[in-house]
Structures are given as C-alpha cells and as structure tokens.
C-alpha cells in the first residue's frame, strides 16, 4: 500500500493536522491506516491518547532517523496506507522518509515565510528523485486559510501554479474543529460540535478525496 509523507521544514505549517485529517478521513472511507509519528513534539501520539482511536487506525510513536525506512518497509506490504508525520526541521529523517514516499504532501500557510521555507522541501524532493532515479509525486496544500483569500495567498498560489507545482484543492481552512482534534482526539465524526461541523467535515472530506485521487493516479 502507498506511503504518504507529510513534510515541511517549517514548524507550525499544519503537518500534524493535515496528517490526522488525512488518516481519519481515509480510515472513515474504509482503509486501514498506520500513522507514523516522527515528530519529537509527539503531536500524533498526543492526539491518539486524547480520545478513542477511530477504527482501522494505529499510531507508531517515536520513530527515529535510523528506524524510519525499516518501519515503513515493515508496514507497506500488509494492506495498510502509511502516513508519516515529520518534524518541522530540515533533517536526514525528513530525507529518508521522502525516499520511501509514494506521495509527499507539503502543508503550508499562505505566507511568504512559509512558502520560502516550504520550497526547500520541494528542492529536496527534486534532488532525491534524481538520486533515486524515480519520480516522487508531491503536492502542496495550503493550511489555515481564510474564507477570503489575501493578496499574499493569491500571489503565492499563482507563483506555484506557474512553476507547475501540484496544489491540492480544496485547501484546509482555519476551522475550530480541526484544531480541536488535538483536544478531543478521535475524528471529526466523534468529537463534540466545534463551530460549523458540517463545513469542517466537507472541507476535510474533499481534501481526502483529492489526496486519494493522487494515490490512484486519477488526478493526473
């Protein structure tokens, strides 16, 4: 089964939220999901202990640089989708996880700083593609976006599109329910109502479907 790596050298870009929304969404749609927590802040592990874990999901904690390749190899043949949540720094662990990816998701807030630092991940992927002599599909997802796009957001989006970067639609909007995942654990279907739940579920579901299309090749 495919491995999705959620990577950005920038902290606070929304990696763990993206990973949890994707993992819970895929599990809700019937997939078996293994979440690999490589972040020293242990965000996924904290989330997994807050509430009842959704069915068909499992979290592996504290996976290090020397263990990451073996951990992915051990799980990618048993019918499970692997989602790797990485630390928000530039490290060898990030590079090794990307080397095992079928899709790299790069969450990014629509700010110039996030775009500048996030671009380092794009550069790393392109260099790894050359070193490994294989294509590593990647897509960028804007996180914590507002209902009305700022000029900065539109400018960054236009710039990436012109460079041929795959942008996931819809972006993940700034929603109370998304941040509350780390307060209540579980998924959007099990948590107490937070803001407009219907819109949050719709946003997350469309995002998961967009990622699924990339994993099946339908998005190309």
């Amino acid at each position: 089964m495919p491995t999705v790596v959620v990577a950005s050298p920038k902290g606070g870009a929304g990696k763990s939220t993206t990973a949890v929304l994707l993992g819970t969404g895929l599990a809700h749609a019937g997939a078996e999901v293994v979440m690999v927590d490589c972040d020293p802040n242990r965000s996924l592990t904290i989330w997994s202990k807050r509430g009842t874990m959704p069915q068909r999901m499992r979290v592996l904690s504290d996976v290090t640089e020397s263990e990451i390749v073996k951990t992915i190899k051990n799980h990618d043949n048993d019918g499970k989708i692997i989602i790797v949540d990485l630390e928000g720094i530039a490290s060898r662990l990030v590079s090794r996880a990307i080397s095992q990816a079928d899709l790299v998701l790069i969450p990014m807030r629509a700010t110039t700083l996030d775009a500048t630092i996030g671009a380092r991940a794009l550069q790393l992927i392109e260099e790894e593609e050359e070193a490994l002599d294989r294509s590593i599909p990647y897509a960028l997802v804007f996180t914590m976006t507002k209902a009305v796009k700022s000029k900065q957001h539109s400018g960054i989006e236009k710039s990436f599109r012109e460079q041929g970067v795959d942008l996931i639609e819809p972006p993940l909007m700034e929603r109370a329910a998304f941040s509350a995942l780390f307060e209540f654990g579980g998924d959007l279907y099990s948590m107490p109502e937070q803001g407009n739940m219907e819109k949050a579920i719709e946003n997350a579901s469309l995002f998961v479907q967009a990622v699924y299309q990339r994993l099946t090749g339908d998005a190309q």
């Binding site: 989708i81 530039a90 080397s99 380092r120 790393l124 790894e128 050359e130 070193a131 994993l215």
Partner: peptide
C-alpha cells in the same frame, strides 16, 4: 492505490540531503 518499488539504501539520498542542509 498505486505503490512504487523503492530501495532501502539511504546512501545516495543521505548525501543529497546533507548538501541541502538536511543533516
């Protein structure tokens, strides 16, 4: 769902990563 064959060797990617500051 599509999955690509991958190598377990990290030698080449480690070197590339090091050059880009991913140490």
């Amino acid at each position: 769902l599509k999955k690509q064959p991958k190598t377990s060797s990290t030698k080449d990617t480690d070197q590339v990563a090091e050059e880009l500051g991913f140490s």
